[in-house]
Design a protein around this nucleic acid. Structure first.
Length: 491
RNA sequence: CGGGGCGUAGCGCAGUCCGGUUAGCGCACCUGGUUUGGGACCAGGGGGCCGCAGGUUCGAAUCCUGCCGCCCCGACCA
């Protein structure tokens, strides 16, 4: 099948690109920067959606859907917002095609020009706040806690499957509140939801923090984020949560009457995670043999590979497999019986490893005789022979152990790849030789941030929320600083 | 959007410099047989607008021009 992967040490980005394609997650479409998410990749995304959606509902949010197209004038209403997105918007200018003169193709009908051009949403704050204006009159209408699952388009110059594509899938939460305090609480609550999802479900440890002025969302007062560290030592922003203040309420004139009868502008938040999480998942855990998926997000938990020579053997094994599968399914374990007789077991082993299935069972004639089954775990590649009667419970325990183990492994890597530095020479040395996260003092200015980026390619990923107060001096300017911030080269 | 590389069968590539029978190879695919506890083997077979569009030429995968796409490096971004 020719599915040997380039190793990570040889060429990390080539490894990533090949893995995405060979594990059947996604491929490039014919449209520049867009991707086809294939069924196996999409089923992982669906699992993410299901989990997140439940977490959103559990925190009081409801789903709705707002349009793909945004009138151009909406975008212009919030100054920093339009400035942030103007360079990467797709624009609809016409609504009709017609046959070309020679009849061989179709052309845009110049008579069908739109009066007001439409922007394909790069995010939905503007359309949503336009609706909120109609929905909100009094404090009794608040809060509004809405999420939507949607696609958005940002015309990126340089794209990579899942990590940065021109069109991507995401969820965007948009909430409206009567007080700043409540909106800030919401912003931080959703940051916690994201962090919990990343750590408990994706098994990716993340740092919660606040973005610097330069890195924050256009239109936000404060942007919070979760940052993960990939195996190549680069950081990946895995989710963002914004405190919008009254910026969009003012831009769209959304006011409410308080209990005292006075009018005030509504306070807002927005928060989102995208199919970029797929990239984080892949890069955090996978190895040179292919994907490594955390059981909580794996579309298939257990693959069963029969080993047989004759039809009779196959039939007897199948019978046993059906029993085991039924037992596993009782425990909510997803099982795939690879009964193909067109491939040898070794081939199947390699293929399912490439696809990251957490647990593999192999059953052959010897096992039938001995009442055993061979159990292999994807994360460590260990194999054990287990008693066939208790396999369901053993697998349940094993899946739990795999989930924990890959988190621990990622956590340990992050610990090893996080370095405290106190001089700029150290900073540069770490960035050049080791990579990863660097904790350093920063004077809080844009100029220093830019200068450090210029010199090292590292940006401020965030100001960690749990950063201890610590007197120090900025590694670059020598000016005083009260806490360390997190630097890294980033995706 | 700037610099570099690439585009030939589903995938990976040779052939391109120096134009000339019928465009090759490995994997995959189809048929038959032998196989099956870590990517099987033998035999036979099918599959090509040589990225697209022009041009030069008796003749173009090969030379020229334009365009499209992908990868890498920069600037920009989730």
């Amino acid at each position: 099948m020719g599915k040997e992967l380039t190793s990570r040490s040889e060429d990390y980005s080539q490894w990533y690109n090949e893995l995405v394609k060979k594990a059947d997650l996604a491929e490039h479409s014919d449209v520049r920067g867009c991707m086809v998410i294939k069924p196996y990749g999409y089923s992982i995304w669906e699992k993410m959606q299901q989990t997140l959606d439940k977490m959103f509902k559990d925190t009081g949010h409801v789903n709705a859907y707002f349009p793909l197209f945004i009138p151009k004038s909406y975008l212009a209403k919030e100054a920093s917002h339009v400035e942030g997105f103007a360079k990467e918007c797709a624009i609809v200018t016409h609504y009709r095609l017609k046959n070309s003169e020679d009849g061989k193709s179709v052309v845009v009908d110049p008579d069908a020009k739109l009066e007001e051009e439409l922007i394909v949403r790069p995010t939905s704050e503007t359309v949503i706040w336009n609706s909120y204006k109609k929905w909100i009159q009094s404090y009794r209408d608040l809060p509004i806690l809405i999420n939507q699952w949607a696609n958005v388009v940002r015309w990126e110059m340089r794209t990579r499957l899942f990590l940065r594509t021109a069109e991507f899938l995401w969820q965007e939460g948009h909430t409206a509140h009567s007080t700043a305090d409540e909106a800030v609480k919401e912003t931080l609550q959703m940051l916690d939801v994201y962090a919990e999802f990343a750590e408990r479900h994706m098994a990716v440890p993340v740092v919660k923090g606040k973005k610097s002025e330069g890195e924050k969302f256009p239109g936000a007062i404060d942007t919070y984020c979760i940052e993960g560290l990939m195996q190549d030592g680069k950081a990946l922003q895995a989710g963002t949560s914004h405190f919008l203040g009254q910026n969009f309420a003012k831009a769209f004139d959304v006011q409410f009457a308080g209990k005292d009868g006075k009018l005030d502008y509504v306070w807002g938040t927005s928060w989102g995670v995208s199919t970029r999480l797929m990239g984080a998942l892949i890069m955090a855990h996978s190895d040179d043999d292919g994907l490594v998926l955390p059981p909580k997000l794996a579309p298939i938990h257990v693959v069963i590979v029969p080993i047989f020579k004759t039809d009779d053997e196959f039939n007897r094994i199948s019978e046993k497999v059906n029993e085991i599968s039924a037992e596993l399914r009782k425990h909510n374990i997803t099982v795939k019986f690879d009964s193909r007789d067109t491939h040898k077991p070794g081939f199947k082993f390699a293929e399912w490893e490439l696809k990251g299935v957490p647990v593999r069972l192999a059953i052959g004639p010897r096992d039938l005789e001995n009442g055993t089954v061979e159990v292999a775990r994807r994360d460590t590649k260990e194999k054990k022979v287990m008693n066939i009667d208790s396999v369901a419970v053993d697998v349940l325990v094993l899946l739990d152990d795999i989930q924990k183990n890959i988190y621990q492994k990622a956590f340990k890597l992050r610990e090893e790849m996080t370095t405290q530095v106190d001089t700029f020479d150290e900073f540069k040395k770490v960035m050049e030789e080791k990579g990863g996260f660097v904790l350093a003092h920063w004077d809080g200015t844009k100029e220093t941030e830019a200068a450090i980026k210029e010199a090292t390619k590292a940006t401020i990923r965030c100001i960690p929320l749990d950063a201890p107060e610590e007197k120090g001096v900025c590694v670059f300017s020598g000016k005083p600083s009260s806490k360390r911030v997190l630097f890294a080269q980033a995706y």
